[in-house]
Amino acid sequence: MILNNKYAFWNNKGGTGKTSLAFQSVTRYAEKHPKERILVVDVCPQANLSELLLGGLNNNGSDKLLARQGLVPRCSIGGYFQLRLPSPYVPPSFVAADFVTTPSTFNVAVPTNIDLVCGDPLLELQANAVNTLANNQIPGSNPWIAVVDWINDFLAQIDGDYDTVFLDCNPSFSLYTQIALAASNRIVLPVMADDSSRRAIQNAFSLVYGLKLPSEIYSAYAFATKLNAAGRALPKVHLIVKNRITQYMGAASAYAAVLKSIEDDVQKLLKSNPEIFTFSKLPNGFVEIRDFQTTGVVAFAKGLPFSRVQVGKQTISSHRVQVKGEYLDNARQAIEDLVDLL
Rank of each mutant, 00 (worst) to 15 (best):
S50L: 08
V90Y: 10
Y89I: 00
L122I: 08
D42P: 12
N58T: 03
I145Y: 07
L66G: 09
R84C: 06
A67T: 11
Y80F: 15
K64Q: 12
P103W: 00
L85V: 14
T105C: 01
S87Y: 14
G140M: 11
V41Q: 01
N58E: 15
S141C: 05
S93D: 15
R84A: 00
V43E: 04
L155C: 06
L66C: 10
P103E: 02
N107L: 03
V43L: 12
V110Q: 02
F106T: 01
V110S: 02
G160Y: 11
I151V: 15
S93C: 06
L116V: 03
L53H: 06
T112I: 00
D161M: 07
Q46S: 09
A109I: 00
L125Q: 14
N136E: 15
P111A: 03
S141W: 05
L85R: 11
E124V: 14
G140I: 08
V165C: 11
N152V: 13
L116W: 05
P91H: 00
K64A: 04
F94W: 11
L65S: 08
C75Y: 00
A67P: 07
T102V: 09
L65Y: 09
F154Y: 12
A67S: 15
L123R: 07
V110K: 02
S76Q: 07
A129G: 11
S76R: 06
A146R: 04
Q82R: 12
F106A: 03
E124F: 07
V148Q: 12
W150K: 01
P111H: 04
D63E: 14
Q69E: 14
G119H: 03
Q82G: 11
A47W: 10
D153R: 01
N135S: 15
L123D: 05
S62I: 05
S104H: 09
W144D: 01
G55L: 03
V95Y: 12
P86E: 14
P139W: 05
P143Q: 13
A156G: 14
D168Y: 13
P121S: 05
C118F: 01
N59W: 00
W144E: 10
D159P: 00
E51D: 02
D149N: 15
S104W: 01
F99Q: 09
N136Q: 15
S50P: 05
G140E: 12
C169I: 02
P143F: 05
V108L: 10
Q126C: 05
V165S: 11
R68Q: 14
